[in-house]
Each structure stands twice: as structure tokens, then as C-alpha cells.
Amino acid sequence: MSKHVITANRLVDGAVVYLTVGGGWSERIADAAVADGKEAGAVLMAKAEQAVADCLVVAPYLIDVADADGGIRAQRYRERIRSDGPSIHPEFAKT
């Protein structure tokens, strides 16, 4: 089964955020609710769509993640740049 989390940008400031288990949004991918498989992903996506309607986030989507170092890590390079910040500014990394 592939693992997914939901990411979006926060409406008010554009920050990269992840849907958490509690239904909130965190700037850290480590806090993200992990969906195992397609159906679980769809459940999360429905929550995210509600957050769009509530003007909290913009354009949520599912990304693939994998276990890494006791946590999770985005699979695609693009998503790693989103979660970690620009590769040219390591000081902006969210830890």
C-alpha cells in the first residue's frame, strides 16, 4: 500500500501546510496524518475540501510519502523542496 499525506498552501499567508490527525494544519510534514492507501486518502481529502470551503487553505492535494528516519519523507523532489524549504536556503528549513 502506498502512503499519502495531504498538503496545501494556507490561504492567509501561502505557507506550505499538511493536514494533521486532529484535522488541523501544520507547517511540519512530521505532523501530517498519514493515509494508507487510496480510500484513507479520500477520507483525508474530504476533510481538506472542507478546509478550502472554510477559507483556510488553497489547492490541497495528496502526495506520496515513505518512512524515513523514524518519520516520513515526501517521495518527489519537488515535495521535498516544499517541506524543507528552498535547497539554497537551508536556514529556512522547518524543523
Binding site: 498552501n9 490561504l11 492567509v12 499567508d13 501561502g14 505557507a15 506550505v16 478550502v52 470551503a53 472554510d54 477559507c55 488553497v58 489547492a59 519537488r78 523542496i81 516544499r82 524549504g85 528552498p86
Partner: peptide, 27 residues
């Protein structure tokens, strides 16, 4: 937009006409 009177689809062309993009990390 912040109040929800405009959806993102409706707001996007308006913000773009003022040079405001939504990029990877932020606006």
C-alpha cells in the same frame, strides 16, 4: 477572498493582474 466571497478560481486572475502568484512555498 479572505471572507470567502471570492473562490480561489475567481480570485486567481484578479491577484495575477496585480503580480501576486502562489508559488511552492508562499505567495
Amino acid at each position: 477572498r479572505l471572507s470567502g466571497a471570492l473562490s480561489e478560481d475567481e480570485f486567481r486572475p484578479l491577484r495575477l493582474m496585480n503580480g501576486l502568484y502562489l508559488q511552492l512555498h508562499a505567495y
